[in-house]
Simulated assay, not measured.
Amino acid sequence: MGKEREITVSLEEFGLSQYEARAYVTLITRGTISASEVAYYAELPRTKVYPVLLKLQQKKLAILSKSKPVLCTGIAPEDAFDDIVHEQINKVEAMNNLVSKMKKISEESKKARGAEEKRYFHLSANYVVNQMRTMIEGAKSSIHITADSWGLSILAECKEEILSVLRRDLEVRLIVPVSVIGSESFRVIPEGVTIRSSEIIQNCFIFDDTELLLIDSTNGKGAVFSATDILGASQTRLFAQLWKDALKIDNLSEMTKSQALEVCKIINVINQNGLGFALHSILNSKKFVDFAKFLEKSGISLKEKTLEQVLDIVNSTLEMTCAGKVQYDSKTNNIILESKINSGHSLPWAMLIESYLEQKGNHPKMIYHSDSHKGEMIHLKIN
């Protein structure tokens, strides 16, 4: 009964009335029966059954006998609906042709206006990891990534795929925010991935400069674009600029998260406001620039740290920012700061060590050397 009702509803879409559909289904399921039987089985009012059967006969769906009582026979569906089906097929084809023509007109109109439609693929949150694995495995030359904590956690799930492309000598570059350095996901990233740090506003994965995967941290959903269009090209250029300006953090990878965050915070504070503080101190005739006190105002204290720990912080900073280093010569009691960049880049860090030593009761002497070819060197002589 359920199937018959379903068929009845479907027949109404072919232009039959509800009564006509019921009567026809009854005829093809019951065979040749009288009009009164049609009314009974199809649950039609007796006063309506003859007009309904006559309409079915007009539509070539039934045959009525001329004898009495009137007997009714349903035409087999394959014969009854052959013309109707072909008519519907022709209508669909005509509609498809019409849609194609309208689409062509629309595209030509957009081109005339200088506009062109581009498509991209939406990814559900559950499918993003699988898609990323596929795209990593398919990379041919390079993978460039900017990732926040969410993006990094997804990337960490693709460790085996990353190892695979590294074995093929692909260039894999990753830019992450300071906040994730030393985190569990950060430590999962294989050696061989070159990592730098910068402020990140999106999760963007660029494969071979031809494909682009963006991931929304708020809902985990993603989208795949062709990197050959204007969006992809701009993202590729943006990554190149971010990479150029980002902080090298190779020497932070073995630190704990809190240690790495502290180093990066000190770098940010001094880089952003250190020069202004130093100039203000000099203009106010201070004997030395108290960078230790300056850091305390930003919530960073060096009082409890040993000289070795302070030198480690400065050494990490110089390595990241100017390819420099710090050395302590115990024989001469000298601290030597070197920088490959000849721009006074190491001076704030020498002043930081100087102010730390002043806090500890020492009064070091600072000597600055500069060479246009070799960079700069600062000697701190501890009394």
Rank of each mutant, 00 (worst) to 15 (best):
M1T: 13
E6M: 04
S10C: 09
E13V: 04
Q18G: 12
T26F: 02
R30W: 08
I33L: 09
S34T: 12
S34E: 15
S36H: 12
A39L: 08
Y41V: 07
A42L: 09
L44Y: 02
V49H: 10
V49N: 08
L54A: 08
K55I: 01
Q57E: 15
K59D: 13
K60H: 13
L61H: 02
I63E: 15
K68A: 08
T73I: 02
I84M: 07
E87K: 11
V92Q: 15
K111H: 13
R113Q: 14
E116I: 02
L123C: 06
N126I: 03
N130L: 08
I145E: 03
S149T: 03
A156K: 03
E157C: 10
E160R: 07
V165M: 01
D169H: 00
E171M: 01
R173H: 00
V176R: 00
S185K: 01
P190S: 02
E191T: 00
T218E: 15
V224M: 09
A227G: 08
S234C: 07
Q235M: 13
T236D: 11
L238W: 05
A240F: 02
L242H: 05
A246N: 03
M255S: 09
Q259V: 01
L261R: 11
V269A: 13
N271G: 10
N273F: 04
G274A: 03
H280T: 07
N284W: 04
K286W: 01
S298A: 06
K305C: 06
V314Y: 05
N334R: 14
I336Q: 13
L337S: 10
I341Y: 10
A350P: 13
S355V: 05
Y356S: 14
E358R: 15
Q359R: 12
N362W: 06
M366N: 12
I367L: 11
S372W: 05
S372T: 04
M377W: 05
M377P: 07
I378S: 09
I378Y: 04
H379I: 08
L380H: 09
